[in-house]
């Protein structure tokens, strides 16, 4: 029982991370129909900007460091959108974007290695406490991951439903041509969306830094599992991301109760393939994927 609850705790925390990852690429997918295959590297970059530059180099307090990292990543996202996403968006095959973003990811990793050095490091004392209730251990960082994910989702809902910018983003997501006809600048909108996505990446990078440490490979596994989470819930939708993320996080931990731990990563990908075969629209199952 204790194991079960303990695994549930880590399942939920990791589920929240997968959710954020799924949302982060879903917003770009919605806005442009493109999938960002370098998102894992963006998360890494976020972690490095926060841990490497803001904390270690400038010795900032956590909160201003976080805010500054978000700003830096937002600018980075806007530049990438201008330089890569917009030129590639008009090409007929999504192959170009896949490759373009993959190469971007490689470049980011090499730059990280050259700028911040090859050695992985830890942000000393950052969210490293634990809380113990009964026999169950709640690491402080898990609690923060859940809290920040919830806050973030609420903020995003308000942003998308109430503000003009959010409405324009949703408009472009549902139909680019119609949005353009309505006088929305689609290119600018995509730049904003990608920047927004980069900010989410930075949030993820900061949140996982205490668990994964800051390392050039830190986001490799969550980036691919984030795709699995999206598919399981419903690809490219916010609701689907939330459901899929939590489902993947929990089932891969529950699996540990019955099977050998070395196959844990297989669970997410098997779930991915099962869902693609049986129910490609995901758990939430709205049949809205016309674009592909």
């Amino acid at each position: 029982m204790e194991s079960f609850l303990q695994l549930l705790v880590s399942g939920i925390a990791f589920g929240c991370i997968y959710t954020l990852v799924a949302i982060e690429y879903s917003v770009i997918y919605q806005a442009s129909g493109l999938v960002n295959f370098s998102h894992g590297q963006w998360i890494t970059l976020g972690g490095f900007v926060f841990g490497g530059t803001m904390i270690r180099q400038f010795n900032m307090h956590y909160i201003p460091a976080m805010l500054l990292s978000l700003v830096v990543m937002g600018i980075f996202g806007a530049l990438v959108a201008k330089g890569i996403f917009n030129p590639l968006r008009h090409l007929p095959n999504n192959l170009f974007v896949v490759l373009g973003t993959v190469m971007l990811g490689k470049i980011i990793i090499e730059l990280c290695r050259i700028i911040w050095g090859a050695s992985a490091f830890r942000i000393e004392g950052f969210l490293s406490d634990t809380v113990k209730i009964g026999g169950i251990v709640f690491p402080e960082v898990y609690i923060w991951i859940v809290i920040i994910s919830v806050i973030f989702l609420v903020v995003q809902a308000i942003l998308f439903q109430k503000t003009k910018l959010g409405k324009a983003m949703r408009c472009v997501a549902s139909d680019q041509k119609a949005a353009a006809l309505m006088g929305i600048n689609v290119n600018r909108n995509i730049i904003i969306t990608v920047a927004y996505s980069a900010i989410i990446c930075a949030i993820i990078g900061i949140l996982v830094a205490p668990i994964f440490n800051v390392d050039i490979n830190m986001a490799n596994s969550i980036s691919l599992k984030g795709f699995a989470a999206g598919v399981v819930g419903g690809f490219g939708t916010i609701g689907g991301s939330i459901v899929g993320g939590l489902v993947i996080g929990i089932i891969e931990n529950m699996y540990l109760m019955i099977g050998p731990a070395i196959y844990k990563d297989v669970v997410a990908f098997v779930a991915l393939i099962i869902f693609l075969l049986m129910k490609p629209t995901g758990l939430l199952g709205k049949n809205q994927q016309k674009r592909s």
């Binding site: 194991s3 695994l7 990791f14 596994s221 731990a261 844990k264 990563d265």
Partner: peptide, 13 residues
């Protein structure tokens, strides 16, 4: 596996 980031399962076992 190399690259694993969560060992809760192994340790609980």
């Amino acid at each position: 596996n190399t690259g694993d980031k969560d060992m809760t399962g192994q340790i609980m076992k």
